[in-house]
Simulated scan of single mutants.
Amino acid sequence: MRFRPHARFPQLISGLLLYGASLALMVRSDLGLSPWSVLDQGISERLGVSIGMANAVVGVAVLLSWLPLRQRPGVGTVGNVLLIGVAVDATLALLPPVEALGIRVPLLIAGVSLNALATATYVGARLGPGPRDGLMTGLHERTGWSVRLVRTSIEVCVLAAGWLLGGTAGLGTVLYAMAIGPLTQTCLRFTAVRVKKDLCP
């Protein structure tokens, strides 16, 4: 980790924008999305709004669930709600749908890989968790369940709800579930920023 106090905000912004772009790549692959994106897509289909707008609405709803969990939002939390949806819609507008499987598979792989880098980038800035991350850690602290169990439980429920609403689950969903943890952990070695308290003996 590196001590870069003046780089944290730009790192946060770039990470959130890249995160939105990565979700759009997975949407265009049409081979399956991350659990939360399956929910976003399902809501988008049902309400007739963009996926980016659905992402923001879900983010606000999840953020409200923090109240009984007594989680504290940060700049990164607000940025997550405001920027990721915009980046999703902007990328989708620039990237037309594709039909060839030979293009869709690379789009999926690129989307998952970029998602891991983007996650490590905005999380590494250490300016506040995203709404969904905060929900996970809040439930972990309140219930005493392991982070793995809480995250798995949340994502299974979210995935099921999104699929029932018409979201796309498939190969990409499985690939995301298997790869995102190890890839993000690897990227965090290069993106995590040290803050002053880390330097105290």
Score class of each variant (00 low, 15 high):
G76A: 08
G74N: 09
W145S: 09
V75C: 05
T91K: 10
V174K: 08
A54E: 05
L165C: 06
A161H: 06
L64N: 10
A179L: 14
D133N: 08
R2Y: 12
A118L: 06
A90M: 15
I13H: 01
L117G: 09
P73N: 07
I84H: 05
E99G: 15
V193N: 11
V58R: 00
Q71M: 14
G166H: 06
V193Y: 04
L114V: 07
V123R: 05
G59S: 12
G134L: 06
F9Y: 13
W36C: 09
F190L: 09
D198R: 05
A116Y: 14
I103H: 07
C200W: 08
G111T: 02
L12D: 00
A61V: 15
M178A: 14
S65G: 14
R72A: 12
G172D: 02
P131A: 12
G144T: 05
F3E: 00
V174E: 04
A125S: 15
I103P: 06
G15H: 02
V105P: 02
A61D: 11
Q71G: 03
L47D: 09
L149W: 10
S37T: 15
G76V: 09
C200Q: 14
V158Y: 10
L114I: 02
R151A: 07
S146G: 15
M1Y: 11
V49N: 09
T77L: 02
R28K: 10
R104V: 04
T121C: 13
L108P: 08
N80V: 03
M26D: 01
G20K: 07
A116R: 12
G138N: 04
G52M: 06
G130D: 01
G138Y: 13
V57M: 14
G15I: 10
V158P: 00
R104I: 02
Q41I: 11
G79R: 08
V57S: 08
G170I: 03
L39V: 06
P201W: 13
A169P: 00
I103M: 15
S29F: 00
